[in-house]
Write a protein that binds this DNA or RNA. Structure first.
Lengths: 340, 340
DNA sequence: CTGAAAGCGCTTACAG
DNA sequence: CTGAAAGCGCTTACAG
């Protein structure tokens, strides 16, 4: 690697102290306009580029934000991270993403390593998009690193803690109202494991509104994968038969995928035999036959809001604990229809 | 922020020099096993975590890799980056991703800013997943930072330069052979703009094999979005009518999406009126009606191979210029059928 | 096998 | 408004 131009080099060429160069380049006060301009010109000519590692080390600051994900095969996470990242770029920050899944399965060991890597990098803040393990939470708290939960609500142990995400209860209510309004009486809630803490509010909102509207709800438990949902749904059908329910709320996109395959393979037509609603809008929802009714949680918006909040905390050192719930909308398509 | 435990603190408590601590913790020779063990124990007790910023600064090394993407709305990129990232994690490296698209459109200014941010961070290597602009290429070369192209072939100006990606020519050949084998005679190649340099080989392989097999190929130009493809396809149909071709090769997933919508809205049935092939496997391909025949370029494998190559270059300083072409496979489904 | 010391490239009190 | 100097937390020749 060729030797790099340093601030010292610029200071020598410009004939001013390193202090002056540092202040001028950082756009801080304490330098005359004339000098500042001259310094900037010299630095440009020399092709000087600040070494942020050194700046961060000395300044005891950091411009990197760590993001913990547990993505599995859910494309949803990547859209979320993209949204956050886009905003951070505008603030001169950048995100380092670490995933806690190995081979589609949550791996506590991997999570510990990831958090440790983030500590080693002295990240300015950590974003959690799922329920972090106890020891991770403890380490982050011990190190006094700001923590923001996005999508996933903070566990009690992490409160008070800022949060940005969908109003999952409301989402469930919207779905229940829509299904009940179509005359459905017996719904299935297909849920992923409750260690994902979006599960509970997503189910509760649905159940509460359903019971208010006189619609019964049966919960079917599934692994958090399309394959798991496929198996769970076929198992349920084998057990109770297809006549026992007239609607299904699949609580995320992989589960929706599994359900649709299971129904197809059982020869059950949607929406004639059963109405189906998914959670999360996705690009193919409208092209499937039938097109699929879904809850749109406005994931890009969640990402952007989270990015803004993070930037505020990091650059202004603001203490924030607010919970920001984004209002979801129902996108009604052909997979839900009046009960025959 | 609470004061952090430093290496000096550990050295004081352990009663040995900082040199000894550094060597012991880094797992290097030059320390007796006894001392090493004692040092590690002390560091653990004190909750010491290396500051990699400082280590990198002093050691003139870096554990971060920059990834440049131009994702637009193609989910494909996020799978690629995930694949790379997963491998890098295992080597103690991490990726910082910067996107050059703003509002779905390529933004040269944003690219320059992104590359500059990567230089400021003194990244160990840069991964390009699309044709970087001239000035970015020049800056990277000037700074003598290793560059690896993934998915997208290096432009002539960047050679010699390592590459990992799909054998796009072969992909085109497989598609042409499949379609010609079904009796199709007049194919449409739906292409995204040629500044994405995967376009040319993807088209050339298709054309060459088609002409060898007596199948004509008409190229339809499209923006690199589903909406663009929809408009392009409807425009083409308005111009030449649906009788002029019997098969379509959509050269990526957003384009496939646009084509399928256009055909549906024109009332043309697949595969009865026209066979359709997409590029890139995606989770919904099998659930669409009809299910869609696609080229699977094995994107996770490309990501993994790239990750391995990158880790080798960064950690071992190997000079690499090899081009690694991954063999694609055709996944035949119901959207392609013998010509009537 | 171990120590004392220099230095990576910055920022920032402290003096003028 | 500007300078000389200390120091962020590490690694690594150089000497013993």
């Amino acid at each position: 690697m060729a030797r790099r131009i340093t601030l010292k080099d610029v200071s020598a060429r410009a004939g001013v102290s390193t202090y002056t160069v540092s202040q001028a380049l950082a756009g801080k006060a304490g330098v005359s306009d004339e000098t500042r301009e001259m310094v900037i010109r010299t630095a440009d000519e020399m092709g000087y580029v600040t070494n942020v590692l050194a700046a961060n080390l000395k300044g005891q600051t950091s411009s990197t934000v760590g993001v913990m994900t547990a993505s599995g095969r859910n494309q949803y996470y990547s859209m979320l991270v993209q949204g956050i990242d886009g905003v951070l770029q505008q603030y001169g920050l950048h995100a380092v993403t670490n995933d806690a899944m190995r081979g589609g399965v949550y791996n506590a060991e991997l999570e510990r390593e990831s958090v440790s890597a983030l500590l080693q990098q002295r990240v300015a803040l950590i974003v959690a998009t799922y329920s972090l393990g106890e020891s991770s939470l403890r380490a982050i708290r011990e190190w006094d690193i700001p923590l923001v939960f996005v999508d996933s609500l903070p566990p009690a142990a992490a409160e008070p803690c800022p949060f940005v995400g969908c109003d999952n209860r409301l989402a469930g209510e919207l779905v229940a109202e829509h299904l009940a309004g179509l005359g459905h009486r017996n719904a299935v809630f297909l849920g992923f494991p409750a260690d994902w803490n979006t599960r509970l509010p997503r189910e509760a909102g649905f159940r509460d509104a359903a019971s208010r509207l006189g619609m019964s709800v049966t919960t079917v438990e599934s692994e958090n994968t399309a394959e798991g949902a496929y198996a769970a749904m076929r198992g349920h059908l084998a057990e109770v038969g297809s006549g026992s329910f007239d609607a299904i709320y699949a609580s995320n996109t992989p589960l929706l995928h599994g359900v649709l395959r299971a129904l197809r393979d059982e020869g059950l037509s949607v929406p004639e035999s059963v109405s189906v609603v998914g959670f999360d809008e996705f690009e193919w929802a409208e092209l499937l036959s039938p097109s699929v009714t879904v809850v749109d949680q406005h994931i890009e918006q969640i990402g952007r809001e989270a990015g803004r909040l993070i930037a505020e905390i990091v650059t202004e050192g603001r203490e924030v604990t607010e919970h920001l719930a984004i209002r979801p909308d129902l996108i009604i398509r052909q997979s839900t229809a009046p009960r025959h």
